[in-house]
């Protein structure tokens, strides 16, 4: 078995793994119950899925310049995916798409750098969705 065969094989495995993760992301978007859990499915397995697909494509083409282009694609995806997810998530949170029951009821912890007792914070406990 030559190196090209090994690279081809690894590339195909990466492509397959990436495709499966993207598929799982799609299934998650359909099956998860509300907006924010869907955001998890829509943005996350896809990150690794996309990186695997890019790796797979590079292992199949094995050209330096293509590799740099793929690197750029991966870099910009990693930088922009959180921004997009954040915008949708915050919009949903502020417009009340999140049920109050889904907000962690525990007391919000505070780390006070001055070391003195902070006292009860103004919005102690559960946050309201329009907070």
């Amino acid at each position: 078995m030559s190196w090209t065969t090994v690279a081809d094989l690894l590339g195909l495995l990466s492509l397959l793994g990436g495709a499966m993760l993207c598929f799982a992301a799609g299934v998650g978007v359909v099956r998860f119950p509300d907006l924010l859990t869907r955001m998890h499915a829509g943005t996350k397995p896809q990150v690794l899925g996309l990186l695997l697909v890019l790796l797979g494509v590079w292992l199949r083409t094995r050209s330096g310049m293509d590799g740099l282009v793929l690197l750029l694609v991966g870099f910009f995806q990693l930088v922009t995916i959180p921004a997009g997810a954040h915008m949708v998530g915050r919009a949903g949170f502020r417009t009340g798409q999140v049920r109050p029951a889904d907000i962690h009821p525990g007391r919000r912890e505070r780390v006070d750098p001055s070391g003195e007792e902070a006292g009860p914070p103004p919005d102690d406990g559960a946050r309201t969705p329009d907070g």
Partner: peptide
């Protein structure tokens, strides 16, 4: 990634989450 992918396709009721603040 594998964990969340599994949550998405696993049989049974799907998962829920919570909003929380972290300092």
């Amino acid at each position: 990634s594998i964990h969340v992918a599994w949550l998405a396709i696993a049989h049974g009721p799907t998962t829920r989450g919570a909003v929380m603040d972290i300092q």
